[in-house]
Design a binder for these strands. Structure first.
Length: 510
RNA sequence: GGCCUCGUAGCUCAGCUGGAUAGAGCAGCAGCCUUCUAAGCUGCGGGUCGCGCGUUCGAAUCGCGCCGAGGUCACCA
């Protein structure tokens, strides 16, 4: 690339002119700001001390050196201490000729090197995917593709949280109030049907808690004593004891959810190489806890619970195993990390997980290090901020969410309406038009989500957030379509590069 | 309270490994469809880059201290 060439030559120039050896990092050029003439700019202020010249003079003699030694430097100008370098049109035309026919321009060949594991999505099976999952999925899928485009061997993995008290809540509510409803009998998508009963549970539970509080019980106690929550906990115990009735209900309802998720993922355009289920992996961490007990990294309380003391590292004491011997979240993540290490021996393990779990991942890495796992450093938590609504946080228990399926459907409808209004589908078959609406609607959504810094919280205003004009996905798609159109009209690309491109350049540069 | 993150135009966001007069889009106003696609283009107005101190030739960018917002410090995941 021309930047690298410029920078190397600047290092040479400084050596030759001022007898000073500098780090290549000190000779970085940047793109010239658009209101100045030139293509690349070097700020020479750091050199003036040993150049023993004014900034202007320093810039001028470096510019002369570059022009003399690099054939592609067509000229330069100096403003204050800024050296603006102009690259010749021949270079750009040559560059274009060289690369314009490359189908894989910008992509590195697959290296076949060590694997990078990217975990994303990680849904619970008690409710459908929402806007937060959209941000998660798009980030994870994009990062995987970017890594892959850089030649990395990438494995996209999903860890489905298919067990736990929240699943039991949906199950219990369906059992009690469902009346035998199924996705088939209602025409409701499986994940939505299950989510409906999760909301139902919460509504009924709140009523019970309110009644207990009215009867004079303290709110904290009421939340623990409400019959519904006790029943849900009982159901979880029966699940863990492999109670046949609970297991078959669990399998049936999870099956509905998976069918629903598959549709959502497909619509969104994301996929996975492998899916882990917590019900199958949640016991794996216990072996590591045993190991830590033996090595003395962990300690056991009188009640039998196991802890790690991280106060020396500036963290807290953290529970790793309950008194009854059951796993907690951290135990599971220790286990799955070890599984992935054993399976892929990855050079990097990326977790796309919301920033409310920053602390959890700091601790996870630290616990693994204390267990003598040097690969704990290969874990990277790709932490992203919450998607907020104008009225505040989304609350799925209260049904206060932007549903992923609904949102995508709205995007497609908006795309359809705008496209039809602009008359863009002339000569399209119904299938082509439908594919176009989806492409544009999804492009708008993806770009809207991905253009903001992952680590920042972002605001989503359902009414006005997603636009098709301005700095949007459809604008980029439109620009691409026009470029394709130009190329089509230009006929064969050789002819285009030779005859037509120069005429498209600004006059003063051709 | 401890720790972490964020604070840039009316709104949503770029810029943050230090560089020139801080940029886009939306919203507002004024123009532009017989050239390749107007989902576009051109122009105008709009800023104490939360506040203060420091480092530096130079700070939106780095450091420290305040203020404000969010997260977290669960035998939830």
């Amino acid at each position: 690339m021309i930047e690298k060439l410029l920078e190397n030559t600047i290092v040479q120039a400084v050596q030759a002119l001022f007898e000073q050896t500098i780090e290549p990092a000190r000779a970085v050029v940047q793109k010239t700001r658009k209101d100045f003439e030139g293509d690349y700019t070097l700020a020479v202020f750091p050199f003036v001390r040993f150049a023993r010249r004014s900034p202007e003079e320093t810039a001028r003699i470096i510019g002369e050196y570059l022009q003399l030694h690099l054939q592609w430097v067509a000229g330069f100008n100096v403003i204050k201490g800024f050296l603006n370098i102009t690259i010749s049109d021949q270079y750009w035309l040559g560059y274009f000729r060289e690369h314009q026919a490359e189908a894989a321009f910008g992509f590195m060949p697959q290296s076949g090197g060590p694997t990078t594991v990217v975990e994303y999505s990680s849904p619970n099976t008690n409710k459908p995917l929402h806007l937060g999952h959209i941000r998660n999925n798009l980030l994870g899928f994009s990062v995987a593709r970017i890594l892959s485009a850089n030649g990395k061997t990438v494995k996209k993995v999903n860890l489905v949280n298919d067990r736990g008290i929240h699943i039991c809540k949906s199950m219990l509510a369906w059992q009690r109030w469902g009346g035998g409803e199924t996705p088939e009998s209602t025409g409701i998508k499986g994940d939505h049907l299950v989510g409906k009963y999760y909301v139902k549970f919460d509504q009924e539970y709140r009523i019970q808690v309110a009644e207990l509080v009215a009867a004079g019980i303290k709110p904290d106690d009421a939340e623990k004593q409400a019959p519904l929550i006790c029943e849900a906990q009982d159901m979880l115990l029966r699940w863990e004891a492999h109670d046949e009735e609970v297991m078959s209900l669990w399998k049936m309802m999870n099956g509905w959810v998976y069918e629903g998720f598959d549709v959502t993922y497909k619509t969104m355009g994301v996929d996975f190489d492998k899916t882990y289920f917590e019900s199958e992996t949640y016991l794996h961490g216990k072996r590591l806890v045993e190991e830590g007990m033996q090595s003395g990294a962990f300690e056991r309380e009188a009640d039998g619970s196991v802890w790690i003391d991280l106060t020396a590292e500036g963290f807290d004491r953290k529970l790793l195993l309950r008194a009854d011997g059951t796993s907690v979240y951290m135990t599971q993540d220790l286990g799955t990390a070890q599984m992935r290490y054993d399976e892929y021996n990855p050079e990097k393990l990326i977790y796309v997980v919301g920033n409310e779990q920053n602390y959890h991942f700091d601790v996870l890495k630290l616990v693994l290090r204390n267990l003598g796992r040097p690969w704990s450093d290969t874990i990277h938590h790709l932490s992203y901020g919450m998607v907020e609504l104008p009225e505040g946080k989304m609350k799925s228990r209260e049904g206060k969410v932007v549903d992923a399926d609904d949102l995508m459907e709205e995007m497609f409808e908006t795309a359809r309406a705008m496209t039809m209004e602009l008359g863009k589908t002339e000569g399209f078959s119904d299938e082509e038009a439908e594919a176009l609406f989806r492409m544009i609607g999804l492009g708008a959504l993806k770009y809207f989500i991905l253009k903001v810094d992952p680590k920042k919280n972002m605001l989503f205003n359902p009414r006005e957030s997603i636009d098709f004009n301005g700095n949007t996905g459809p604008f980029i798609q439109y620009t691409y379509a026009r470029i394709r159109s130009v190329l089509r009209k230009a006929g064969d690309s050789e002819k285009f590069a030779a005859d037509i491109l120069p005429s498209l350049l600004p006059k003063e540069r051709s």
